[in-house]
Design a protein around this nucleic acid. Structure first.
Length: 468
RNA sequence: GCUCCCAUCGUCUAGAGGCCUAGGACGGUGCCCUCUCAAGGCAUAAACCCGGGUUCGAAUCCCGGUGGGAGCGCCA
């Protein structure tokens, strides 16, 4: 049997990290088993569903490369099917109309709570045959009164529920529209889903869904209830925890494969391996290795992984990404060859593309000021003379390449009897404005002769007279 | 309150009864490398929630407790 999984987000908020992890596991499982991954948008809540949210989901999935093999399906376009199924259940007396008012139900719940019982519908309309005048009824599923329901969960094992703990849930509202639990059941059945992979907040819904599936004559799928993802503080994930939408991770300069790798390791593991390529993940993933307890997000580790993936990524691709990030800083960098060179030396000193862009800005814009602290520490009275000599040697260089530049640097320092730092740091300040940059020879090589000499001249003019 | 789920270093995890003196990773600390910052290398501190049982032997199995989470909507 072909594996068929589905990711079924509701477009009522943002596609956040928890949703992405669920989508990833569904996708990985399908990929691993040569199955089909389906995207289904659960938009039956017309009050809260928005087109923007749908778009965010689509864009997010696209960015992450979690391509669906089928869909996206939209529940709002399947209303006829839900209605027909509702009628069928009604005709077979597996569902019934309930005329209780919301106030009535409210009171019922309150009374039950007061009695320390679990609040639930008491089934008072179960056997009603006559409509109540002036009331638009809802439709309830007639849940079995006794016996047990067994949920076969790949992650949790067998979980059993007593039917008497379950009540007759509403499957269609007074306006006739079907509700979530019912749509899910009809969809999973119609779409022949073999593995329902979702957050474990749905575990408690599962027995009802199995009962409905049974009422409809369908065999229940396998279930896999994934542990929740928590914020860095161990509390429930919320807007306070930074990136609300996945797309913000893109803006913050994360690589999609890094985010996916990170998310995969939240709950899943393959021995001691931390870094996974896409192919490794799809080749190794299995639900059997998913653990049961909730996991807190760790931004430091995400950053580390992002760097690991940048270190492994294609230079051309990163150059384009860096170009985009630079643009956001208002820096135009049209030379992709130069950008590749920059990426090559910057990626081991940046956790994200945003960091890389910030640290690479000086390649494209001469410093408009020198950092006070750096100047105080590295610009001494003998510095201008040294800088001037270095400038002259660079000017005379035939080949503008890192090794030659390095030689010039080393040679001069040796002659002057000073350590490399005595010269490299002032040059760094002249060229970048601060005391941090990639190795100075590589930096100057990438910066180019013209820009280098010009910046040294500016610095000389500045420090030459200013320094005591 | 009721039902269900969960429990290994700060965090993510390995561990399917002896291989555990509990391993790896992030982060921390120290050292090496070094023109700065990194990257890299080496080293180091740091955990089996508690209590019973089963067993020759338990992080691993069972029970209880404690703690955390989820669900109990005409939301999904």
């Amino acid at each position: 049997m072909t594996v068929r999984t589905r990711f079924a987000p509701s477009p009522t908020g943002m596609l956040h990290i928890g949703g992405v992890r669920t989508a990833l596991f569904c996708w990985l499982y399908a990929r691993r088993h040569g199955g089909v991954f389906i995207l289904r948008v659960e938009d039956t809540d017309r009050e809260r569903s928005t087109d923007e949210a749908v778009q965010v989901i689509l864009d997010g999935m696209e960015w992450l490369g979690l391509k669906s093999d089928e869909g996206p399906y939209y529940q709002t376009r399947r209303m006829d099917r839900y209605r027909a199924t509702l009628e069928k259940l009604l005709a077979e007396s597996k569902a019934y109309r309930c005329y209780c008012s919301k106030d009535e139900l409210d009171e019922m719940r309150k009374a039950q709570m007061a009695r320390k019982e679990k609040p639930r519908y008491d089934g008072r309309c179960r056997e009603r045959t006559e409509p109540r005048a002036g009331v638009e009824p809802v439709i309830r599923f007639r849940n079995p009164l006794d016996g047990v329901v067994e949920v076969g969960d790949v992650i949790h094992g067998r979980v059993t529920f007593q039917n008497r703990e379950l009540d007759d849930l509403i499957i269609a509202r007074a306006d006739g529209s079907p509700t979530y639990n019912f749509c899910v059941v009809v969809d999973d059945m119609d779409m022949a889903i073999t593995h329902v992979i979702r957050g474990d907040d749905h575990l408690n819904n599962t027995p009802r869904q199995i009962n409905m599936l049974q009422a409809l004559g369908a065999a229940p799928p396998a279930y896999a209830h994934l542990p929740m993802i928590l914020g860095p503080d161990g509390a429930k994930l919320s807007k306070r925890h930074g990136a609300v939408s996945v797309l913000e991770y893109r803006e913050q300069g994360y690589l999609p494969e890094a985010l996916l790798n990170y998310l995969a390791r939240l709950g899943w593991s393959h021995g001691d391996q931390e870094v996974f390529s896409q192919d490794e993940m799809t080749g190794l993933f299995d639900l059997a290795q998913v653990n049961k307890s909730a996991a807190a997000i760790n931004p430091d580790k995400l950053n580390w992984l992002n760097q690991q993936h940048m270190l492994r990524a294609d230079l051309q691709r990163l150059a384009v990404e860096l170009q985009g990030q630079l643009q956001r800083l208002g820096v135009q960098a049209p030379d992709l060859v130069q950008l590749q060179g920059i990426v090559a030396i910057q990626r081991e000193r940046a956790k994200t593309l945003v960091e890389m862009a910030r640290a690479s800005r000086f390649f494209f814009a001469a410093p408009d000021m020198y950092e006070d602290k750096a100047v105080a520490k590295h610009i001494k009275s003998e510095t201008p003379a040294l800088l001037q000599q270095f400038r002259d040697r660079l000017h005379a260089l035939t080949a503008w390449e890192a090794p030659a530049i390095h030689q010039a640097l080393e040679g001069l320092c040796a002659e002057a009897g000073v350590g490399l730092g005595k010269l490299a740091q002032p040059v760094r300040i002249a060229v970048s404005g601060g005391s941090v940059s990639p190795p100075i020879d590589a930096t100057l090589a990438l910066l180019g002769r013209e820009a280098t000499l010009a910046r040294l001249d500016v610095a000389l003019a500045h420090f030459g007279s200013g320094a005591q």
